[in-house]
């Protein structure tokens, strides 16, 4: 473990707590893409299957349980508890365009053609594009509540911090994993437009709502 990865995990944890709190306190999932949350739940389910077979550390197991639990709790809030506030009309991204290519790619490019490894690879590829429905929805509605933008900032920062962690691990331990690194770079690049707007939000007129040009 290094400080970059710890910061990344904390940023990731912060993001999903912000999202859960936003939905629970406002009793609404307006502006939230249920499709992205489904993608994240699939990602963590495919990646954390080794939760019971491969104990790494208390921290690792605890975080996996938290991420899985929060992902499904968020799905419950969106599709069951506050279903009436789910914005079907704006959450229209065709997720099959994400799922099919990532399944194919995980079968073609992986470290080891074993079920667990292919599922892990699939989860890495899927996570890199899972935020697209949400970013698409924000661009479609033309704005994001400030709390949603904080969620996106924390979520985008998590993988950016992981990239620094991978650079550190390469020089410090000689470890690297090109699949994770390439997917992580793609994932972080997708947020760049949003990062720019989020950071310059203070200097723009409508500082209250964050508007992303389509």
């Amino acid at each position: 473990m290094n400080v970059f990865r710890l910061a990344g995990d904390i940023s990731h944890l912060l993001a999903i707590i912000i999202l859960l709190l936003k939905i629970w306190t406002s009793r609404s999932c307006a502006g939230i893409s249920g499709k992205s949350q489904v993608m994240f739940a699939i990602t963590y389910t495919a990646r954390y299957l080794d939760l019971f077979t491969n104990f790494i550390s208390l921290y690792n197991s605890t975080m996996k349980i938290i991420f899985l639990g929060a992902a499904y709790a968020t799905l419950y809030l969106i599709y069951v508890r506050f279903k009436a506030t789910y914005d079907h009309n704006h959450d229209t991204f065709r997720v099959e365009f994400l799922l099919i290519p990532t399944v194919i790619l995980s079968v073609l490019i992986n470290h080891d053609f074993s079920p667990l490894e292919i599922l892990w690879t699939f989860s890495i590829y899927l996570e890199s594009v899972a935020i697209l429905p949400q970013l698409f929805m924000v661009s479609k509605t033309g704005e994001a509540e400030s709390i949603t933008s904080h969620y996106l900032f924390a979520l985008g920062s998590y993988r950016a911090l992981y990239i620094i962690n991978w650079v550190y691990r390469y020089y410090a331990e000689g470890f690297y994993d090109l699949i994770a690194i390439v997917a992580g770079v793609v994932q972080t690049v997708l947020y760049c437009d949003f990062f720019y707007l989020y950071i310059t939000k203070g200097s723009r007129a409508n500082a209250t709502e964050m508007s992303i040009e389509a």
Binding site: R5, D9, H12, D50, N54, I56, S57, N60, M63, K64, F67, I109, H111, D112, W120, Y162, N165, W166, R169, F175, Y176, D177, L178, I179, A180
Partner: peptide, 10 residues
């Protein structure tokens, strides 16, 4: 060349 990272990352 796709050297594996041990799966200790989340």
């Amino acid at each position: 060349f796709l050297k594996k990272l041990n799966k200790d990352e989340l």
